[in-house]
Design a protein around this nucleic acid. Sequence first.
DNA 1: TAGATATATGCGAACAATCGAATATTCTGA
DNA 2: TCAGAATATTCGATTGTTCGCATATATCTA
Lengths: 114, 114
Amino acid sequence: MPDSLRRFKADVFQALGHPTRIAIVELLGNRELSAGDLIEELGMEQANVSQHLAVLRSRQLVVNRKAGNQVFYSVRDPILLQVLALMRNYFQKHLNEALAILEEIDESQAENTK
Amino acid sequence: MPDSLRRFKADVFQALGHPTRIAIVELLGNRELSAGDLIEELGMEQANVSQHLAVLRSRQLVVNRKAGNQVFYSVRDPILLQVLALMRNYFQKHLNEALAILEEIDESQAENTK
DNA sequence: TAGATATATGCGAACAATCGAATATTCTGA
DNA sequence: TCAGAATATTCGATTGTTCGCATATATCTA
């Protein structure tokens, strides 16, 4: 496989490689939500959410539609939702290990705060 | 969904968010390959490949088996291969946009080298 | 045991990603 | 045209990732 193709895939995965962006894609699901809706649901800084939306847009994982004052976002291709569904599956299958990994992450974070 | 779950998913995606690691998982497919095999196939520095393998191991996307002198790697769960297959699908569907994105990346890299 | 082979790890420099704060843009309604 | 609402962008500080190089560890073979 050409390297450019791998870079493309890696870019898509990397765009999904942040909890907030996962949350955005999952909140969107099959419906449209405005940026404001997302900000409210996520309970995060407006600018921060907007930045994450910019990442998802730049990789074209979401599309947006302007309606007057607002901007409505949706997932561009349902394949992405299938991918997330597979991941849910994967997570359940490996729940124990997953929790262990998460604990490690927490511990190493505690470590850093010492 | 709890945030921890999203972090777990994000971690998995992030592990896949590098062209070399995509290449490794795709090379492995359903078979086992030694670290040396992978280094040869990839044509990259031994240490670099080993570091990428460490990332994949730490997120448990691959498992390894020691046999004497060598270490054999394989993909832990075929779900990951399904995910990659879906991405192939996605890529073909959006080939044109994908190429545009790749060009942008190239341009911004050229920008940086100015 | 010594030397070779296979793999992993530690370190530092370069680069990229993230966040909050401030500011800019775009649109609406008075 | 102006104020205000919704969203996006820019900036700088901080943190995380990646790479190459050097070195460590483990195993095999003579």
